Simulated assay, not measured.
Amino acid sequence: MGMDLYDILDEEFRPLVLPNARLEVLATGRRWLEGPVWLADQDCLLVSDLPEDRVLRWCPDGSVSTLRQGQGWFENGHARDRQGRLLACSHRQRCITRTEWDGRITRLAEHYKGLRLNSPNDVAVHPDGSIWFTDPPYGIQTDYEGGKQVSELPAQVYRLDAELGELAVATDRLAGPNGLCFSPDGKRLYIAETGLQFAAEPVQHIRVFDVAEDGRRLDEGRFFHQVAPGNADGMRCDEAGRLWTSAGDGVHCLAPDGRLLGRIHVPAAVANLCFGGPALSRLFLCCGDTLYGIATNTRGAALL
């Protein structure tokens, strides 16, 4: 497969990928994989098979087991808080949850000003411990990802102060906020705008927002990059601040100034991705019914 696997558009990309690395099928035969998160202390990857209401555990020995299934959560995005507890976006229950160390599931946020959230999609944790998540209505507009329900709030991005339980709108400037990712220093927040779900020509691009020094507010944001083919969804930063984003033809690597450095070709559109493995140098890719993995020569940002 070698370098045919890659498009090197900028020489900065060349040392980030490995000519002898293979794109490996890690699991297949699922329905729609989403929300990958690496658990370094447990040496495993968690990933959602969203339409099946199932969270799977993949281990480096190739085994795949079920963490939970059929509990009515229909989980999408995952992250870990600063204590290492699992955070999840529930479509069906329209909330953000935290799995405690004893296995109990706590609902952290499900209402804003007395109204129900839509269907939290993706979640990221700022270095200060606050929990940020996107809340488009995608999960309650079909029966495929959780079930049709009535939307009570516009699509927004929220900041949750986990200690105080205070929920605030971080931005309401996106019609369809989807994947999100902080820069390693927490000073930038990247958000994938995927627009209105059934629009003929939805607005789809990545926007970047500066985070205020107090870690509580965003600026008005600005255009960062237009992914093509397809659109951006899930994304992660590496330790140098480069953004690795999902795309219609695989994974695109972007410089902090928005330049496209290179691509990794994948047989199917990538919905979400994360870094993992012992050195955080392996990319795990959710591609429809298949989970792929590929080794890189960079490391994911050391955020939980």
Rank of each mutant, 00 (worst) to 15 (best):
L196T: 12
D122H: 13
A302Q: 15
S63N: 10
R242K: 05
D122T: 11
T66Q: 14
T290C: 15
G139R: 11
F223I: 00
E239Q: 14
M235L: 07
P137G: 03
G293H: 14
T245P: 05
S183E: 00
C287L: 00
A247E: 10
N272Y: 03
A170C: 07
W101M: 11
L243C: 07
A155W: 04
I294L: 15
P19Q: 10
G84W: 06
A88V: 09
G195Q: 04
D135Q: 08
L39T: 04
A199Q: 14
W38C: 08
E145H: 15
R94F: 09
D214I: 08
V203C: 13
P154W: 09
D219M: 02
A21L: 04
I206K: 04
H225Y: 13
C44P: 05
R159I: 09
R173P: 03
Q69F: 00
I206M: 13
S48M: 13
Q197W: 12
I264K: 07
G29D: 05
L285E: 11
W101E: 14
G215K: 09
Q141M: 11
H265K: 13
D10W: 01
E12N: 12
P60S: 03
L45S: 12
G258C: 04
I294A: 12
A175H: 05
V17A: 10
E110R: 03
I191Y: 09
R116N: 10
G84E: 09
L167A: 00
P137L: 02
R85F: 10
H111D: 13
E34D: 11
V55H: 04
E24W: 05
R54I: 07
K113A: 14
A199I: 06
P120R: 06
D185H: 10
N76I: 00
Q141A: 04
A199D: 15
L189C: 09
C287H: 00
Y112C: 04
Q197L: 15
Y6H: 03
R31G: 04
A302G: 08
L26W: 01
R104W: 06
R282A: 06
L117F: 10
A212H: 14
L174W: 01
F133D: 00
V17E: 09
Y292R: 04
L5F: 02
N118S: 13
L45Q: 11
D122W: 12
V37I: 14
V64L: 15
V227L: 00
D102L: 05
D185Y: 05
R259G: 08
T28Y: 09
L303W: 08
T171D: 05
T28V: 00
L33T: 02
W132H: 01
I105K: 12
R14G: 03
P184N: 05
P256I: 01
E145G: 09
D161W: 02
H126C: 03
V270E: 01
T106M: 13
D249I: 01
Q42T: 06
V47E: 07
C59K: 15
P177M: 04
C274Y: 04
R68L: 15
G276L: 12
V227I: 12
L254V: 03
L46P: 11
F198M: 13
Q71T: 08
F284V: 02
R80Q: 15
T99M: 13
Q204K: 14
R216F: 05
A232Y: 04
L273S: 13
H111Q: 14
L67K: 08
E75P: 10
W58F: 04
P267H: 06
G186Y: 01
T194K: 12
M1F: 08
G29F: 06
W38L: 10
